[in-house]
Write a protein that binds this DNA or RNA. Structure first.
Length: 933
DNA sequence: ACGCTCACG
DNA sequence: GACGTACGTGAGCGTA
């Protein structure tokens, strides 16, 4: 039941951003006890809302209310003037994750919460104020922002909530020296250094008001500027007319927005106590929860009092490692006791022990838990009886273990409870193992990913290394339990007593690393990266990997046979050409034949003193001789057969009939994923023969493979970061970017472009991304080095922004020791100040990392959003190949999937980063990957 | 275990 | 002035 907004109604419009910043600065940096999430501003915000709700009584009480927020940083004003708000300082790192929580808080209070992409909160406020005023109602804007003063009058007032001071028409006069209707004129002249509105140089509010009052309006003033007596002031207004008019456009609020809601929907509603309490409890606000509960006359929910996360780095080291303190859990009562302690604490480090490294085939052997440094246990579950009296190993279970099902049934509720944080090292592995026994881990932190967010480029992020580096403790080596090579045993054959020490230690180390890393995330300003680009990817990848992709064994098998035959023929031919038999696959032997026996020119040796025979050298020789040409043919076939048609077959899972790769999240320093076991990111495509291997990657009957890939994403990002207008425009117009580059560089009109000139420009475009050098380009294009250098010089001349980008990036790296992506991912560059040949590598890597890394961030964001976006559609995301996502879709769902996935991918940078260049996504489909790509 | 070569973006 | 160079990966093979 809603009343029509009208005469007797009173609308309150709350400036949400102002509330947030006030709350942020007014409160100390509180963190949520259980996991260290910064919540100080949320707490202040909640208090302000509560005080507002409590105070909204009496004759001035609102009947309708909304909290209005800014959304995104790019608005129509940036399109008018790209420097608008350019001086704004970046949002503090610990405030960023709190922004969405303030929306949640508003909704929890059952107060309307509005934001619209591309507009500032002020525009929404302006539009609503006008609508309410026109409907005959009364409006109070709760804000002290002077930009909103233009709205005052005709029943619209402002209220500064801190000073509790009302601002009416007189108040505006006091501030601006003119009435509300002329405020924008004054602002247009005076400008605003905070928002970077230029205004007229040398004119402030006082002078502006004087002029406006004299001439009546800004337009009148500008038209009659010649009449101004003071010569300097006159000249300023004449010279800066455009800038002043632009300024007016910038400060003028949009009162005429199309809103997707109406005034009636803002009517005040009581909060739903359960929702509100739920939110407050989730935030772990004890005091305010109790206060509001008392007010509502209800019982306050119990908030588990978990121990605060130790902040002192010494805490992790204070307790010495002692394997004797680890205990074995072998009965339900003891396990229940542990679970009680976990619930009490609110977090637990978890590690699984299994029979292997492949999560799809390895079986769960035991689970370890740790709640406090030095306090860890191991729950053996499926250890086999001692192998010592049975040469082949017994299949009987060892004594002294509780039942697998019983243990899992007890653990499942706490592992799936989102209010209990599960801490792991490489949680994707454990999550997949648990998923296979029906447990869906909820709420987790990952020490490997924390290290990656902070230390990419400095070192690897494996547990043993992290332990030695940060805890000064060398863990028990798994080798000492399992042995190596052929005689290695699986973990289920390890005696339980030994397993307890090893396994519990892993959980202990993980917990201590977490205690150390958690507060460091904020100190190193990578909380947002960890929270938005690392952690949420874990469940997404786990699902993709478990789904796998169907690979047709017969297709591969047939190809293998065909390759074998061709190779046999080539082998005979090669023996003939060489005059003797030799190992065709040995570069050393091939080198001897080419450069010693055949005495060809151009051979180089590797650092180990062997002849070097890479493809490009052989290609040069192949123009004159058959032997190197046949070697190249042979090598291509051998590669395809051994790495692809043969090896892929061994990766087909017997249960699923599919291939399940595993993605390393923390492998590549730039933020890219890496695929392994098997690597599905390097399936051939560049040659026709290799491309056919993709025919073996198929959709299930009735389904279709769909591939969507970003078009030229790295060049688009380069154009944005380096601010290259010509490139930006070319992308906007949908031009062939390499042809355009060629045209610019070589002064060839586009309609006279030859493939060869375009090819050269393409090589230069890519070279730029890699940190171009004359040498590298010369080798790639096989042209003299001087000529290559000439191209590069020319390129920099035509696109000077790129030179600046490269120089600035290297300078930044030298100063800070890292470079950054647009999303704040930091890539450390410890070698950047090194002397000698290392320096060149480090420089080029530093130039490349922000570009490659930003592209990696973009597709990560798309992948993280994808499951929710395609929920309900008959589609599954299967693979990622750096700029490409592959889906398996029911045939009648293909069009919808493409539409949805494209939207997610093209909008992946929003709203965190507004790219000057739109992202474009190409789509393909087919029964197999060759057709879909 | 390491180097060489080559598959991908 | 010389030196050594495109960026980021993973895997299979030969050689030690």
């Amino acid at each position: 039941m809603t009343t029509q907004f009208g005469k007797s109604c009173h609308l309150h419009l709350i400036d949400g951003s102002a509330f947030i910043f006030r709350a942020y600065h007014a409160l100390p940096p509180l963190t949520r006890k259980s996991d260290g999430l910064p919540v100080g501003a949320v707490s202040g915000f909640v208090n302000m809302l509560q005080r507002y709700v409590e105070g909204n009584t009496g004759p001035d009480a609102a009947t309708h209310v909304a909290v209005i927020f800014d959304k995104g940083s790019h608005t129509f004003r940036n399109d008018l003037y790209d420097q608008y708000k350019a001086n704004r300082e970046a949002m503090p790192e610990d405030l960023r994750p709190q922004i969405p929580l303030t929306r949640d808080a508003t909704r929890a209070f059952n107060i309307a919460c509005e934001e619209i992409e591309g507009f500032e909160a002020d525009d929404i406020i302006a539009t609503l104020a006008h609508q309410a005023r026109d409907a005959g109602g009364r409006v109070t804007i709760l804000s002290s922002d002077k930009d909103l003063m233009q709205l005052v009058g005709g029943g619209v007032e402002m209220l500064d909530p801190m000073k509790n001071k009302r601002i009416d028409t007189d108040g505006v006069h006091e501030k601006f020296g003119v009435g509300p209707e002329r405020v924008v004129d004054v602002q247009a002249l005076a400008g605003d250094s905070v928002d970077n509105v230029p205004g007229a140089p040398g004119i402030g509010i006082k002078t502006a008001a004087l002029l406006i009052n004299e001439y009546g309006s800004l337009e009148e003033l500008l038209d009659r500027a010649e009449e101004i007596k003071q010569p300097k002031r006159r000249q300023t207004l004449i010279d800066n007319r455009d800038q002043i008019e632009l300024s007016k456009q910038l400060v003028q609020l949009d009162c005429d927005m199309e809103l997707p809601f109406d005034l009636d929907s803002l009517e005040i509603k009581d909060a739903d106590p359960e929702t509100l309490m739920g939110f407050l409890a989730e935030m772990e606000f004890r005091t305010v929860t109790k206060r509001i509960a008392d007010k509502l006359g209800i019982e306050a929910p119990v908030i588990a009092d978990v121990a605060p996360t130790p902040i002192e780095t010494s805490a992790a080291e204070a307790v010495p490692f002692d394997q004797a303190t680890y205990s074995k859990v072998a009965d339900a009562a003891t396990l229940e006791d542990w679970i009680g302690r976990i619930r009490e604490r609110g977090y637990v480090a978890v590690d699984t022990e299994t029979t292997g490294l492949n999560e799809m085939t390895a079986d769960l052997v035991g689970i370890c838990l740790c709640v406090e440094a030095g306090d860890a246990c191991y729950i053996p579950l499926t250890h086999k009886a001692s192998a010592s009296d049975d040469l082949f190993g017994s299949d009987e279970l060892a004594q002294g273990q509780m039942g697998l099902d019983e243990a899992l049934a007890l653990l499942k509720p706490v592992l799936e409870d989102p209010s209990v944080l599960k801490i792991g090292q490489n949680m994707k592995y454990d999550a997949k193992i648990f998923a296979r026994v029906g447990i869906d881990i909820a709420a987790m932190d990952d020490t490997m990913l924390m290290s990656y967010a902070m230390n990419a480029g400095l070192h690897n992020h494996g547990m043993d290394g992290l332990s030695e580096r940060y805890l000064n403790h060398k863990p028990i080596e798994i080798k000492s339990l399992l042995g190596t090579g052929k005689s290695a045993i699986t973990f289920d054959r390890v005696p339980i007593e030994d397993a307890v020490k090893y396994a519990a230690e892993d959980a202990d180390i993980t917990l201590r690393l977490w205690q150390l890393f958690k507060p460091q995330l904020h100190e190193k300003c990578v909380t947002t990266v960890y929270e938005t680009l690392e952690r949420p990817l874990v469940p997404v990848l786990a699902q993709m990997e478990r789904t796998g992709v169907k690979v047709d064994r017969d297709t591969l098998s047939r190809m293998s046979n065909a390759f074998s035959q061709k190779m046999a023929g080539l082998e005979a031919e090669l023996y003939e050409l060489a005059g003797r038999e030799f190992n065709v696959q040995s570069p050393a032997q091939v080198g001897t034949i080419l450069f010693d026996e055949m005495a060809l020119e151009g051979g180089k040796k590797t650092k180990t003193g062997q002849w070097s025979t890479p493809a490009d050298v052989l290609e040069d020789l192949a123009t004159e001789h058959d032997f190197p040409a046949r070697i190249l043919d042979y090598r291509q076939l051998a590669k395809l057969k051994s790495t692809y048609t043969d090896a892929l077959q061994t990766h087909i899972n017997v249960e699923t009939g599919r291939v399940h790769t595993s993605y390393s999240i923390a492998g590549a320093n730039t933020g890219r994923l890496a695929s392994n076991d098997p690597n599905l990111q390097n399936i051939p495509v560049r040659t026709e023969e290799g491309r056919r291997i993709r025919e073996a990657f198929v959709a299930e009957p009735g389904k279709t493979l769909v591939s969507l890939d970003y078009s030229q994403i790295e060049l688009r990002i380069l154009a944005h970061i380096a601010g290259i207008d010509t490139l930006k425009q070319a992308f906007k117009d949908g031009h062939d970017i390499h042809a355009m580059t060629a045209s610019e560089m070589f002064d060839v009109p586009l309609d006279e472009m030859t493939p060869d000139i375009r090819r050269q420009a393409k090589a230069i475009n890519f070279g730029v991304i890699y940190g171009i050098s004359g040498f590298g380009l010369a080798r790639n294009l096989r042209i003299p080095r001087a000529e290559a250098q000439g191209f590069i010089d020319r390129y920099f001349e035509r696109f000077p922004g790129i030179r600046t980008y490269m120089d600035d990036t290297v300078a930044f790296a030298k100063e800070h020791g890292y470079v950054e992506t647009l999303f704040g991912r930091k890539i450390n560059t410890p070698e950047i100040n090194a002397k000698g040949p290392h320096a060149g590598f480090a420089k080029r890597a530093a130039i490349n990392a922000p570009i490659q890394g930003t592209a990696a961030d973009v597709i990560r964001r798309a992948m993280i959003r994808m499951p929710a976006a395609i929920a309900g559609q008959p589609a599954k995301m299967l693979l990622q190949v750096h700029d490409e996502l592959i889906f398996e879709v029911a045939e009648d769902g293909v069009d919808q999937l493409i539409e949805t996935a494209r939207e997610v991918m093209e909008g992946a940078s929003d709203p965190a980063v507004r790219l000057d260049v739109k992202l474009a996504v190409d789509a393909g489909q087919g029964a197999n990957w060759a057709e879909a790509h």
